[in-house]
C-alpha cells in the first residue's frame, strides 16, 4: 500500500506538467483557510451558484482545473478574486478522471488545510449546515483528531422528464432537482482499501436495473485535512493511507457524516451525455451515459411514487442517509 501511495504521488507530479497556470492567487491563502478543489469541463452555467454556495459555507479559496472548456467558464473563473485556475487540454481519462491533477494541487497547496474536493454539480451538506459554518465542523473534527469526513453522493432529480425544467445560471439547482431516493442503496466493504462501496439510488433503479454491479459508486470522502503523502485513489471514493477511509463504525455506532447533493440530472444532462459518449473520456467509457441514451435519452424519468422531496439536512439524518453522530 505504501508503494501504491508513492506511485500515486509520483504519477500526479508527472501529470502536473499537463497543467498550465492561468491565474494563481494562491499567495492569498491564509493559515487555516478551508480550500476547495475541483475539476470541470464546460460548466459555466453552474459556476455562479456553485461559487456562492461554497463561499457562504466558509470556503476561502478555490483551486480549479479546467479541462479545455469552450463555454466562457475559464474567463468567468479567472475574474473571481478567490479562484486560482489551471488549464489543460490533456486527456481526462488518462489523468484517471482528474484525480492526478487534484492530487497534485492538494499536495502542493492543501497541506495543513481542510480541503473539500467536489465537482461543480455536487453540493455538500453536513449536520447543522443551516446554522453552523463549515469551520465549526472542521474545528470539531480537529478536536477529535479526525482527518477525513464522509459524504455520500445523493442523486437529485426533477419530477417528469429532465428536459422539462430548464436550468438558469445562478439558480439553485435543488429548486427543480429536488427529489431523491431515500433507501435503495447497497453497501459493501472493500477489503483492500477498507472503504465502503455504496451503489444504487435512482441510477441503479433506472439505468442499471439488470447490471447493478456496473452502477456508479456513491461513497465519497470529499473533506480531508490534507497532509504530506495523502492521495486520492479513485475519484474521491477512497484515499491512501487507508486509515482515512475508515469513516464508518463497524461496531454498530454512527460516525458523523454528510451528503453531497448531486445535481447532475438537470436539462443539461442530455447534451452532456451526447458529448461524453463521443469523447469516451468517462469512467467505464461512460456506462451511465450509454445507459441513459439506451433508456430513451430525454424521455428518461427518474421520479417514482416513492421519491422523497428534499427539505433539509435533518430530513436526510432522520432517513438515515447521513448522521450527526455525537456532534450535537
Amino acid at each position: 500500500m505504501r508503494i501504491a501511495r508513492k506511485h500515486l504521488r509520483i504519477r500526479c507530479t508527472r501529470k502536473s506538467f499537463e497543467l498550465r497556470r492561468v491565474v494563481d492567487r494562491t499567495a492569498r491563502i491564509g493559515r487555516g483557510d478551508i480550500l476547495l478543489v475541483s475539476t470541470m469541463r464546460n460548466e459555466n452555467i453552474r459556476l455562479p451558484y456553485f461559487l456562492q454556495y461554497y463561499r457562504d459555507m466558509g470556503v476561502s479559496h478555490f483551486l480549479i482545473v479546467d479541462n479545455d472548456s469552450d463555454d466562457g467558464g475559464p474567463e468567468y473563473l479567472a475574474e473571481q478574486p478567490d479562484v486560482s485556475l489551471w488549464r489543460t487540454g490533456a486527456s481526462y481519462r488518462k489523468s484517471r478522471f482528474g484525480v492526478d491533477w487534484q492530487n497534485y494541487l492538494l499536495g502542493r497547496y492543501g497541506r495543513g488545510h481542510w480541503c473539500l474536493t467536489v465537482d461543480p454539480d455536487e453540493f455538500f451538506v453536513y449536520p447543522f449546515c443551516d446554522t453552523r459554518p463549515l469551520r465549526a465542523l472542521t474545528d470539531w473534527l480537529d478536536s477529535g483528531q479526525t482527518r477525513s469526513f464522509s459524504a455520500m453522493l445523493l442523486d437529485m432529480y426533477p419530477k417528469g422528464r429532465l428536459a422539462d425544467h430548464p436550468y438558469q445560471s445562478g439558480q439553485d439547482p435543488i429548486e427543480t432537482a429536488c427529489w431523491f431516493d431515500s433507501g435503495n442503496y447497497s453497501v459493501a466493504r472493500d477489503p483492500r482499501f477498507r472503504n465502503l462501496w455504496i451503489q444504487g439510488g435512482p441510477r441503479g433503479r433506472v439505468f442499471f436495473r439488470d447490471t447493478p454491479e456496473q452502477a456508479p459508486a456513491l461513497n465519497k470522502i470529499p473533506l480531508v485535512k490534507w497532509s504530506r503523502g495523502y492521495a486520492y485513489v479513485q475519484s474521491t471514493h477512497m484515499l491512501l493511507p487507508r486509515v482515512l477511509n475508515k469513516v464508518y463504525d463497524p461496531s454498530g455506532g454512527e460516525k458523523t457524516s454528510g451528503v453531497l447533493l448531486h445535481t447532475k440530472f438537470l436539462d443539461t444532462f442530455g447534451a452532456k451525455a451526447a458529448e461524453e459518449i463521443s469523447r469516451q473520456q468517462h469512467y467505464a467509457a461512460g456506462a451511465e451515459y450509454q445507459a441513459y441514451a439506451a433508456g430513451g435519452g430525454d424521455a428518461v424519468e427518474l421520479w417514482c411514487p416513492w421519491s422523497e422531496r428534499y427539505l433539509n439536512w435533518r430530513q436526510l439524518e432522520v432517513l438515515g442517509l447521513m448522521s450527526q453522530g455525537n456532534w450535537a
Binding site: V187, S251, K255
Partner: peptide
C-alpha cells in the same frame, strides 16, 4: 442522545458511517 447515536446507532440501518461488520 448524540452520544448514544455515536455508540449504539440506529438498529437496522446500514449507511456510509454505520456498517456493522
Amino acid at each position: 442522545k448524540a452520544v448514544d447515536r455515536r455508540i449504539r446507532g440506529r438498529r437496522g440501518l446500514l449507511m456510509q458511517s454505520r456498517f456493522p461488520d
